[in-house]
Each structure stands twice: as C-alpha cells, then as structure tokens.
Computed example of a mutant assay.
Amino acid sequence: MSTSYFFGYGSLVNRRTHGFDPAHRATASGWRRVWAQVPGRPVSLLTVLRDPSCEIEGLIAPVDDAGWAALDLREACYDRTDALQDVRHPAERVEELAIYVVPERDRLPPDAAHPVLLSYLDVVVQGYLAEFGAAGAELFLATTANWDAPILNDRAAPQYPRAQSLTDDERAFVDAALSGLGARVLAR
C-alpha cells in the first residue's frame, strides 16, 4: 500500500467523486478554505490559504504514482503542497501527505463573471454531510471565506463534471445554508 496521501477539503471529501481508498477523516491545522477565481477558469473554485487560527476537516486517502498523475490533472490549477505536519488522522504509515493549493499569485476574488457553480457546492456539502453530518457541514461553511461570491444555480443542467444527485434533504440543507449566509444565487 502507498504511504503517500492527499488531504481533500472540497469535492475530494465526496467519495463519489473519486476511487481512492481507504479514505480516513482528518483535520488540517493552520488552513482555511476560500472561494477564489483562477485565471483561465470560467468559474470560482475552493482553495486553501494559510491561517494559523483555523483548522478544517477533510479526508485523506492513499495515492500511488498513477493516482498522483490523475489527481494532478484533476487539480491542474493547484500546486501540490506538503501538509504532513499539518494534518491529524488515524491512518498508519503516512510518509507523505499533500494538500492542493491555488498559488496566491493566481487567486482573485470571485465575481459575477466567475461564479461558484451550485452543482460544485452541492457535491462538496453532500460529502461533508456524509462524512461529518450536519454539524460537520456547518463547520465547512464556517471555515470557508468569500461567501459573498455569486453562486450560479446550474442544478437543472450541471456544469460541474463530477456533479451528483442530491436527496431532497441534502438540497434543502444547501439551500438553507446559502440563505443563512446571505449568499447571492444567480438564476441560470
């Protein structure tokens, strides 16, 4: 088994979006999630930035060389960054642990021309609900910045390539969370 792992904090928390196994719940200290626009991308994405006052929950899973090639392609606008000393987890024999980070020079605030896809947010929240329950999904919301980003409602025709079907309860949770955050949801 590989001793090299990734720490997922967004869509990688949703096991339906990848086949890396066994995945373990984990916590990364000194990081905060943030919505960011990335040059060359039509939508805003989740990334992380250093924040010594914050910790975030996520998943770790082992990755072999072929898996890294696939993950690096999936996370093409991110840098694979060492996070071994930042992440607490129950896995044994973890010798390398990476987190994907959009470089600071490439992070811009989200805007109407680069919204967050609701289908992407749905996948992320669905993963947090499955792994950490409602309290964990609420913690995801609380430890993520830039909720003033416009959210494009693309549920009827998802643009996110790994979009998932949500249950009525999951959809209601996301919608209530966005309302509670005062998020601006744009009609398609």
Results as ranks from 00 to 15, higher is better:
79 D>E: 15
178 L>I: 07
45 L>I: 02
180 G>Y: 04
154 D>F: 00
23 A>I: 00
188 R>Q: 12
171 R>T: 07
101 V>D: 10
2 S>Q: 08
24 H>Q: 10
144 T>N: 04
169 D>T: 12
46 L>W: 06
138 E>Q: 14
47 T>F: 06
8 G>D: 01
177 A>G: 14
86 D>Y: 09
17 T>F: 09
26 A>G: 01
102 V>E: 03
159 Q>I: 13
138 E>A: 14
121 L>W: 03
48 V>W: 03
38 V>R: 06
123 V>P: 04
87 V>T: 08
115 P>F: 00
52 P>L: 14
37 Q>M: 04
145 A>N: 06
134 A>K: 07
31 W>L: 14
101 V>H: 06
29 S>K: 10
188 R>E: 13
78 Y>S: 02
78 Y>W: 04
94 V>F: 08
42 P>L: 13
114 H>K: 07
117 L>N: 08
126 Q>W: 06
131 E>V: 05
108 L>E: 09
160 Y>R: 10
154 D>K: 00
9 Y>C: 02
143 T>L: 12
47 T>V: 09
145 A>E: 13
179 S>E: 15
43 V>F: 14
122 D>E: 12
20 F>C: 01
161 P>L: 08
89 H>D: 15
126 Q>I: 05
107 R>A: 01
61 A>Q: 03
9 Y>K: 02
182 G>W: 11
77 C>R: 02
67 G>H: 08
170 E>C: 12
161 P>F: 11
165 S>I: 03
185 V>T: 11
160 Y>M: 05
40 G>L: 03
12 L>W: 03
36 A>N: 07
90 P>Q: 15
75 E>C: 12
107 R>L: 02
184 R>D: 15
120 Y>S: 02
128 Y>R: 02
76 A>K: 09
94 V>R: 07
75 E>V: 11
97 L>A: 13
154 D>V: 02
39 P>L: 00
187 A>H: 14
3 T>H: 12
118 L>S: 06
171 R>Y: 05
51 D>C: 14
77 C>L: 03
105 R>C: 11
181 L>S: 08
153 N>D: 15
8 G>C: 07
135 A>D: 15
4 S>R: 10
76 A>W: 03
